[in-house]
Amino acid sequence: MHNERSLTLAWLVLLGLTLIGGVVGNTGSPGLWVTVAVAAMMAFKGRVVIDHFLELGGAHPSIRRLVRFYAVALPVMLILTDLFGPQIAWLTTL
């Protein structure tokens, strides 16, 4: 029962954050701090799915670490792209 309550709460939190994301998408203006906030929300939602839906807390380390890394690496890459976009573009121009 504790697990079911915890899972339901996780689901409701994810739904709430999704609705907040929708509001940001409609009303937010571009800026580094908005990008950082969106990236933090991505990482948090990813971690909640990994811990509560996938239940990887006690899984084999190679599975747990890789999936957790995935949900952190993408938001970090998003921030880096907005911070160093011109440099990344210069480095990847043929």
């Binding site: 999704t18 994301g21 998408g25 929300m41 990813g46 799915v49 996938l54 949900a71």
Partner: peptide, 23 residues
């Protein structure tokens, strides 16, 4: 199956902000 479905959910949670949220 549940693991696959949750992983597909996880990927959507990465796609959604990149295309629909970020101003």
């Amino acid at each position: 199956f549940a693991c696959y479905w949750h992983a597909t959910d996880l990927i959507w949670l990465m796609i959604f902000p990149l295309f629909y949220v970020l101003p």
